[in-house]
Structure formats: structure tokens, C-alpha cells
Design a protein around this nucleic acid. Structure first.
Lengths: 231, 231
DNA sequence: TTAAATTATTGTCCAAATTACAATAATTAA
DNA sequence: TTAATTATTGTAATTTGGACAATAATTTAA
């Protein structure tokens, strides 16, 4: 232990890493960028940026999301902080990871000044990433899986209208386990959902009915404490 | 958005707040200190400190715990980060909260240079705290409650040998709900515990048998994936 | 037009877990 | 020895969960 001045502490920076999860083709995916600048130039990485001195943390995460996707007003979930002294080669930078859940089809990915390339990568096909981003991403994915079990966040990933099978497949991918169709439906029996008349299109078999999440009714029931989402 | 130099980012500090939870007299308690210095002099607060430039985050949390309690080699759990731009009156300081679970009887609380007073406070009797510490503490307590449901961390709070009733009362306090004795025992039937011959002392009724957590057997069963703690 | 194929949806049965409540056992204090 | 208190175990009814079967709706190919 050594004594230093109070002002000597104000020599660190912090960044926000923003993990953007989506769901398509039966897989949960994360948006990765290819870094255009040093350090770790040409490495794939989780999008992130230093936080401005007067900026709030979730605000910084939203800024990153907006730059890459054009999406705003998306709920940000806090993940963990990562602060090993040498995790960044250019100085002491601790990072706070946030994650967002979005519908892939809702927008076009945008280019960015600091990203040479950008792509969706399935969570079972993540390559070697810059910094400690493999660790950050896997810890955050673990948190997402936790949330999927206890909160109705799957509906932020699924399209607005979805089939019950699509919903089941999302859980099967996340939990890495097969589920029985009949039993899955029993399990979600009390989740407030709206059954539409509309059917699946362009499938070469009996089309499934489309459902959507009844968020209003869900909020209602949670307030009255007579419902608790649970998978 | 405005452009600033890379080095201009390195003007922030970060701190670690270390919430120390204990359990006694049927209540979960947190260790609070009375601040001896400005800002918020004489306010009760969660113990915390700025992180040294080369110090890792959990290491800083352990240092705080050691200074106050003399305890070391205690597992630290990461809570959340709190980073509103104006949360600290003297500059941009974001804080990462950690929490530790300890057995109150295992040690004597130590005085500290930056704490004028220090005391255990039950979680249902928390006063107004310095900074945003009320928020930090309640968010972290919510996380602890979550952990109590999914991991056998209650045994870090209970004495090494405890009665099943003490265990039940811990959960009753945390979950704010009464439980049936017989059903509670059924629920914990498969938790690996050692039943001792030793009995409770100095009670004016039939003494209860003492148990302790069989951590070795627990680890074993978790590895073989034939057990998952769940309340 | 019809039959085969495919998938959606619903139902049944059994085992396991949960709940409410009762009964019994062990100990202390008077 | 008895009353009081608490620990511990048991029972029965209900609810939930999992395996599997049956039926319904639709497409495609003959």
C-alpha cells in the first residue's frame, strides 16, 4: 500500500461495452464489429466506446446502439464490470457491459467510423475476440440466459408476431436442451399472449397460428401480484 | 456530441463499495460506517474506497473488508455499477458494488481511519445514507435475495453449525414470508448436510439438532450434474 | 380429387412435488 | 409427574411436470 494524492486517482477512463443480442434462424446472435483501429486492429470485438465525462452509463450504451443500428428507446440491461489493471494496453480502463435485446428484422445495420465490418454471429460460433471480450460476452450471455428464465424478455428477441414453435426453439437454443411441444405449451399457458387469426406464410405444411405478447396485461397481472413469469 | 482528446478521458476515478452482509437475531444485516470526513460527514454509508491505479476491483473490495473486519479469503460477489455523472460531488466517480457474506460471530469489527463509527444494521431498518448508497444497498440486497434462491450461499451467513429452524428463519426474513416447518424440511431434503450428534445449548425447551453444510459433497454432486440447489 | 406426408394442437396418464394440516417425540420447568 | 414448548415425522389432497398418444389442419404429389 502506498499513499498518493486524491487527484492521482482521477487518471482512469471507463468504457461501456454494448452487447446487442438478436435472434434469427433458430439461434441467438450477437452483433460483432471488426476493429478498424489499434489496438487489436482487425480483430472482431463487442462494440464499445469510452464514456464522455458528463455522460451517464446507460446513455453511453444507448449511443453505441444508436450509431450501429439507428435504434433508440431500447431498454438496456446492465451486465458486469471488468476492471483488471492490464485489460487495456493503453491505460487503466474499466468497462461496464450492458446488453440490449432487439428484433433483427427491425432495422439495417449501419457502418461506423470505428468499425471496418460488422456482422451477426451465433452464440455457438463466436471467434477469438479483442481484449477480454470473449469473457465479457460469455458472462453476459449467461446473464441473458438467466433473465430468459425469470422475465419475459424472449419477446424482445422474437418478432412482434411469432409462432409458439419459434418461441420454444429460442428456449431450446438458449438452454441447450430439447423440449416436448405439448409440455412447453402447458408451461406457458398463463403467459399473457394474444392469439391472432393470422397464420404463418410460405411454409410447406400446416401453418401455425401467430401470437403476440400482451405486455399491458402482463404488467397488470404483475402489479396485482397474481402472476410471476417463470420457465 | 463533441470531440475531445483521448487523454481527456483519463480524468475519472472509480471506487468500490463493499457491502458486508451478516445474519444475527433472525435478521440479515449490513455493516454500515459513519463517515468521519467530507463529503457527507456524519452520514451513515456503505464502506467503500477509491481503487488504486494498479489494483484489481475484487482486490479493492477485499482490502476494504480486511480493514474493517480483519477477515480475508472471503469470496466477493459482484453487484452492479453506479455511474450517474453527479453522484459524487467532487468529480466523476463511478462505483462498482461488491458484496461479501460473512458470519458475524467470526470476528471483531475494527475501527478505521475513515470511519467514526460502525455498526450492523438490519435490512429492514436502514437509515438515510450518504451519496446514492440507499439505492446501491437495496439493489445489492435484491441480488443477494436472488442468490439465496439459486445458490447455497445461506451457509456463508449462518454459523458453521446451525439448526434447521435458523436456516428457515433466514429465508423467512429474506423472502418476507412465513413458511411451514414440515414443508421447509421437505424442500431442503436433498441439500447435502451433515447431521451432528450435538444439540442446541441453553434453550428452555427441547433442543434442536445441529447441522452443517457438506460443501465437499455439494461440489461433488454439482460436478456430476445430478444436483441443483433451488429454493 | 385423393392419399400420403408433415406439422400444429390437444388430451391422457402417471410420477413427482407442493401444500395444508395432524400426530408424535423429546426436552425443560414447575 | 405433568404441563408446556418445540422438534420432528407423517398423511392425504392438490397441483405440477414429463412421456407419450391422438386428432386436426394443411401442403404436395400422384
Amino acid at each position: 500500500m502506498y499513499l498518493i494524492n486524491f487527484t492521482d486517482f482521477f487518471t482512469s477512463a471507463f468504457s461501456v461495452d454494448c452487447i446487442i443480442f438478436g435472434y434469427s434462424e433458430g439461434k441467438i446472435k450477437a452483433l460483432l464489429i471488426k476493429r478498424a483501429i489499434e489496438p487489436y486492429e482487425n480483430f472482431w470485438a463487442v462494440p464499445g466506446d469510452l464514456v464522455y465525462p458528463t455522460e451517464d452509463l446507460p446513455q453511453a450504451a444507448e449511443r453505441i446502439l444508436l450509431e450501429l443500428t439507428g435504434l433508440s428507446h431500447i431498454q438496456m440491461h446492465q451486465s458486469q464490470s471488468f476492471g483488471k489493471p492490464n485489460r487495456h494496453p493503453q491505460g487503466r480502463v474499466i468497462t461496464i457491459a450492458y446488453f440490449a435485446l432487439i428484433r433483427i428484422k427491425d432495422f439495417e445495420i449501419k457502418a461506423s467510423s470505428w468499425a471496418e465490418d460488422i456482422k451477426w454471429t451465433a452464440m455457438d460460433e463466436i471467434p477469438e475476440l479483442a481484449f477480454d471480450h470473449n469473457f465479457i460476452l460469455s458472462e453476459t450471455y449467461a446473464l441473458l440466459k438467466q433473465k430468459l428464465l425469470n422475465e419475459p424478455v424472449c419477446f424482445d428477441l422474437l418478432p412482434e408476431r411469432f409462432t409458439l414453435n419459434e418461441m420454444q426453439q429460442l428456449y431450446e437454443f438458449a438452454l441447450e436442451t430439447d423440449m416436448d411441444k405439448a409440455n412447453f405449451r402447458k408451461k406457458i399457458k398463463y403467459v399473457p399472449m394474444i392469439a391472432h387469426d393470422e397464420k404463418q406464410q410460405n411454409v410447406k405444411h400446416r401453418p401455425a397460428k401467430l401470437f403476440s405478447f400482451n405486455k399491458k396485461e402482463y404488467t397488470n397481472q404483475v402489479e396485482k401480484k397474481d402472476y410471476q413469469f417463470k420457465m
